[in-house]
Amino acid sequence: MSDSRHSEPDQSRRIHEHPLLGELETADMVNITVDGQQLQARSGEPIAAALMANGIDICRAMPESGESRGVFCGVGRCSDCLMTVDAVLNVRTCVTPVYDGMRIETQHGLGTWLDGQP
């Protein structure tokens, strides 16, 4: 898959000011890598939120059709947002917090474990 969607990190989707919620509190930033590209995330935010803030909306590709999937329910119910995280397959990124050094990969189909087992 082409990585063009990763080429220009776009942090402008972050909501810094909000009329009801006020100013976004500062947070510790952590480094994560997404398909090999290093990005910044707010410590403790869900992976999918960090990705979205960096302009990435695609989490995985379906096993047969190859169609893209991204956040759908946003609250851990639907499994559309599964990705491979630190070599663990099928992680629900909308409810899994980032940590420093986390390695995240777009999951293709069912993914592959490190030992090569599907």
Binding site: R13, R14, I15, H16, H18, L21, L24, E45, P46, A48, A49, M52, A53, D57, I58, C59, E67, S68, R69, G70, V71, F72, C73, G74, V75, D80, C94
Partner: peptide, 25 residues
């Protein structure tokens, strides 16, 4: 309906208000 960018109202509300990020413009 399965395309990234299509989501439930609650996903939109959760990402905007709890995680403070815009799913779209």
């Amino acid at each position: 309906w399965t395309l990234p960018g299509v989501m439930t109202a609650r996903a939109a509300q959760t990402f905007m208000h709890v995680h403070r990020v815009l799913p779209g413009r």
